[in-house]
C-alpha cells in the first residue's frame, strides 16, 4: 500500500493568525530564537493501487478542488517512501 502526502500551507502573503498565536506563545514558554511560525495542514492519503502518474493526477485534482483552498493556500503533493513511514 502506498501513501501520498499532501501538505497545505497558507500562501506566504496571507495572514496566519494561528501561526502568530503560536509564535507569541513560544517565548512566554521559554522557547527563544524563533522568528516566525507558519502553521499548515498535512493530509496522508493511503492508496489502493500503485502510485502512478494517473493516481497522482487524481490526487492533485482532489487537492486543488477540495483539500486546499487555492485562493489562499498552496499545496505540495509527494509520495512517501518506506523509510519515511
Amino acid at each position: 500500500m502506498a501513501r501520498v502526502v499532501v501538505d497545505v500551507m497558507l500562501k506566504p502573503e496571507i495572514l496566519d493568525p494561528q501561526g502568530q498565536a503560536v509564535q507569541r506563545a513560544l517565548p512566554r514558554l521559554g522557547f527563544d530564537g524563533i522568528t516566525d511560525v507558519r502553521q499548515g495542514k498535512r493530509f496522508e492519503l493511503e492508496l489502493e493501487g500503485p502510485v502512478d502518474e494517473a493516481a497522482l493526477a487524481r490526487i492533485r485534482e482532489a487537492a486543488e478542488s477540495f483539500l486546499a483552498n487555492t485562493v489562499i493556500e498552496d499545496f505540495v503533493v509527494r509520495v512517501e517512501t518506506e523509510e519515511e513511514k
Binding site: 497558507l10 496571507i14 495572514l15 496566519d16 493568525p17 502568530q20 498565536a21 485562493v71 489562499i72
Partner: peptide, 11 residues
C-alpha cells in the same frame, strides 16, 4: 491577483 485578506477576530 485575487486580493484576499484574512481576518483575525481576536486581534
Amino acid at each position: 491577483r485575487p486580493a484576499v485578506q484574512v481576518g483575525d477576530p481576536f486581534q
